[in-house]
Design a protein around this nucleic acid. Structure first.
Lengths: 148, 148
DNA sequence: TATGATTTAATCGTGTGCGATTTAAATGTT
DNA sequence: AACATTTAAATCGCACACGATTAAATCATA
């Protein structure tokens, strides 16, 4: 067991905890989302559209922090599942609006129980969860890419 | 802007912050790791082997929280890059030991600066980072899967 | 008004993640 | 010994992520 560089010890690395925790939580979502044939990133996009329908791909990307290389195929899959419809803007053909279908809209009510289901699986107090979320949001916001 | 189900608002979801923060930090690693032609998960595996060389795939999997379906191809890529060697246990042919090559070992010294480089990019105080890490570790440990 | 720059989405290639299955080896049980 | 069970790694299929590039539409401006 080498410890020439204690800073390289996995146990000391915030980033690994972050990486592991994120995957862990996504795995917890899977059995719940499978009932609706959704993946976690697809669920994120639906959360965004339930908040505000008829967004541009660009706007969804900004909110989900995903670019079109990830979003386009994902949106196509949701379209295939009849949860949404994509439509080019007739004014500006570069842009593409995304609208929920009736099926996509109706899923919102069914999914409303998911957050509380997930919370139930966590033994962490609500205070700590809020605290954790604040720290994570701080981490993202403070680390803007330098330059350009 | 609908708010029939405030619990479905993305801004209220710890899980999204976690998901976004994890990808954000991985993106910050990329330009640094590119110098050594490493991805972040590959770097994780090297961190583990620098701590203790000659581990079984199973042991690496336990520490990285990855299964062989992810690890095997990743290890093959690292082997391709001459950073490690895989060797079947002659006693128990099911098992596979992973050893660092000289090149793999020598990379440790070069990577020793990475954690401090990453810290420099974060404007967060060390106290908050430690606190964040503790909360994340708590989140993982407390959420054991229920039942087999 | 031509044309170069910018913007938006799509496409491409590579590398994860992970559920599910397969293969082969070892172990346990009768 | 014979056979079912378990274990470890590999394989398969699918869906992300993301850097890089491309294609098309729009904008800016000379």
């Amino acid at each position: 067991m080498s410890d020439k560089f204690p800073e390289l010890n996995l146990d000391n690395q915030l980033c690994f905890s972050l990486y592991a925790a994120s995957r862990h939580v996504t795995r917890l979502y899977q059995p719940i989302l499978k009932k609706y044939e959704l993946t976690y990133p697809q669920y994120i996009v639906l959360l965004i559209l339930w908040q505000q329908d008829g967004l541009l791909v660009k706007e969804i990307g900004k909110r989900a922090q995903l670019k079109s290389n990830t979003l386009t195929p994902l949106l196509k899959r949701l379209e295939q599942g009849n949860l949404l419809k994509r439509e080019r803007d007739t004014e500006d053909e570069r842009q593409c609006y995304v609208y929920l279908t009736e099926k996509g809209k109706s899923l919102e009510t069914q999914c409303a129980c998911i957050p509380s289901q997930m919370l139930k699986q966590t033994d962490m107090s609500l205070e700590k969860i809020v605290e954790l979320k604040q720290l994570l949001d701080q981490l993202i916001q403070l680390q803007e890419p330098h330059g350009k």
